[in-house]
């Protein structure tokens, strides 16, 4: 959890909706993110978590004022404009570039041209194993190492906000711990982090606040220590006593 949280929203959404053709995936999402905060978004498959991140990053177009970054409407901005403003995403499934080496994948993150403290040296300090394997093809790495490349690649864009979509997906528990161990170091550099997770315990452990999504709506919001298991169970599944 972050120690540098300022009670000042850097990003918020107002009545955010999203559609895939005729299908409505998000219904009036009201979300805010304070500077320096780590916020987790939890929810089951199809709850709208990834759609929400895609809406913020410009991969899905919205009303301009439905997403605001530092007071500036960005709902209709293109992905490259949003990256230049300082919002970068670690996509679900890592989505590394197989033709490129580890080093080249990382360099791709800096194409937006934003300056800041994150460069190759800092990424290699954060994930030393990547320095050893920098000349390898990105697909030659293990799943955990690939996830490190995906995170490093997003950090190379020197973002103010880092959006992490299911970074623990398909990884062994011990590897997930390694990945999440890097989070405090990232936050200490002044990066505000949003983590989308299906693993509720992991999400609660790393976050300052939690949003739970259910069927395209926010079903719960609060600090991890304020939320009871029953409330989360209900918000996550829409059922009583679905998990113990």
């Amino acid at each position: 959890m972050s120690n540098h949280v300022l009670n000042q929203p850097i990003l918020y959404t107002q009545k955010l909706t999203a559609f895939y053709g005729d299908f409505q995936a998000l219904f009036g999402i009201e979300f805010h993110l304070n500077i320096g905060e780590t916020v987790a978004i939890i929810g089951s498959n199809g709850a709208g978590k990834t759609t929400f991140l895609r809406s913020i990053t410009g991969l899905l177009c919205n009303e301009p004022s439905s997403v605001k970054f530092s007071g500036q409407p960005i709902g209709a901005s293109s992905p490259d404009e949003i990256v230049k403003l300082g919002i970068a995403m670690v996509p679900e499934g890592r989505q590394l570039f197989p033709s490129l080496s580890v080093e080249e994948n990382l360099r791709m993150g800096s194409l937006s041209g934003r300056s800041g403290q994150w460069d190759l040296r800092n990424i290699y300090e954060l994930f030393p194993v990547l320095k050893e394997r920098r000349h390898h093809g990105s697909m030659d790495l293990s799943g955990g190492q690939q996830q490190m490349v995906a995170i490093g690649r997003a950090l190379m864009a020197n973002p103010s906000i880092l959006l992490c979509d299911e970074i623990s997906l398909g990884l062994a528990p011990i590897i997930i711990k390694d990945i999440y161990r890097a989070l405090p170091a990232i936050c200490s550099e002044g990066v505000t982090v949003v983590v989308v997770e299906q693993d509720i315990r992991q999400a609660m452990a790393v976050s300052d606040r939690v949003y739970c999504f259910q069927e395209g709506r926010i079903s719960l919001e609060g600090r991890p220590d304020e939320l009871t298991t029953e409330a989360i169970t209900h918000a996550y599944f829409g059922l009583e006593d679905a998990v113990s």
């Binding site: 990053t57 991969l59 293109s78 992905p79 490259d80 949003i82 990256v83 230049k84 970068a88 995403m89 996509p91 989505q95 590394l96 570039f97 197989p98 033709s99 490129l100 080249e104 360099r107 791709m108 993150g109 194409l111 937006s112 690649r153 997003a154 864009a157």
Partner: peptide, 22 residues
């Protein structure tokens, strides 16, 4: 770097786009 961007688009359009590649 333009060639790098082009290769990235070929490999994964979504990831390239989310990194700011036009």
């Amino acid at each position: 770097s333009w060639g790098l961007a082009l290769t990235a688009i070929r490999d994964s359009e979504a990831a390239a786009e989310s990194l700011g590649v036009k």
